[in-house]
Design a protein around this nucleic acid. Structure first.
Lengths: 125, 125
DNA sequence: GTTAGTAGTTACCCAAAGGTAAGCCCTTAC
DNA sequence: GTAAGGGCTTACCTTTGGGTAACTACTAAC
């Protein structure tokens, strides 16, 4: 593990600032599904049922609501192709891609977290 | 339209993996307050009322619940000092600090997101 | 004795999130 | 005609989150 010795002691203003930033970020990214949905669509554009299949456990109702919400917030676009029957593709916008490093870090952390949980389960049994 | 189920897309397993990682991470970090609380305590250890004052809008009930939850999940420690009256200090554990890069990215993103929102407000008015 | 501060707990209540199940409209396939 | 997707919507219900306010136990200060 990398240990950074010269932690820049942040000033109070900076602390409060980053706290506010995080709160603001969480405000739009709230809920159980949003970040996962964005990640899924950044990886590749998909149709409704494909998303529902990939994100195990999400119901169609919640998925529809979240997609609308993400579209309103400019994270995704809903494209309708006039095939027969119409094909509806959800794709991530450029703005979603500004979340890439957040998602990268979160994924890395999630992975090691799962490892840690497995370790502590082993110890208990 | 025919559905091809076995697309040999390169990195598909990897995609599904990071999706799972993100979902796992969100599972422990859910809610409006957890990441902000962790950030606050990573910046410096604090007492109950200090936290409540810093995180504007959190009620004592919710704060107490979140602190318990974070303690259970090994993100923070509750230290009691036998002064008169007793002093109770909450501090971040080393495990909280593994979230530093996540929090850093999230804060950076939150900041530019706020800027973006301000821009679009200006345009509308 | 009263007030104030610390660190919460408890009771009550409301709203939002989210799950389940069914249905709907459209079209192609059998 | 009937079934089988695809892309949702609707109704219904439960769970969770979270807000308010009151209250506790302890101590120190006025």
């Amino acid at each position: 593990m990398k240990i950074i010795k010269n932690e820049p002691l942040p000033g109070k203003a900076e602390c409060a600032g980053s706290l506010k930033n995080v709160l603001d970020a969480l405000y739009v990214l709230n809920g159980k599904w949003k970040l996962a949905l964005i990640l899924s669509l950044v990886q590749s554009s998909k149709r409704f049922n494909e998303i529902q299949h990939e994100i195990a456990g999400i119901s169609s109702k919640v998925l529809a609501k979240e997609l609308k919400d993400l579209e309103l917030n400019d994270f995704i676009e809903r494209k309708v192709y006039p095939t027969t029957p119409v094909t509806i593709i959800y794709e991530a916008t450029g703005y979603s891609r500004t979340l890439k490093s957040v998602l990268g870090e979160l994924s890395a952390w999630g992975e090691q977290h799962r490892e840690k949980i497995k370790q502590s389960m082993r110890k208990q049994s």
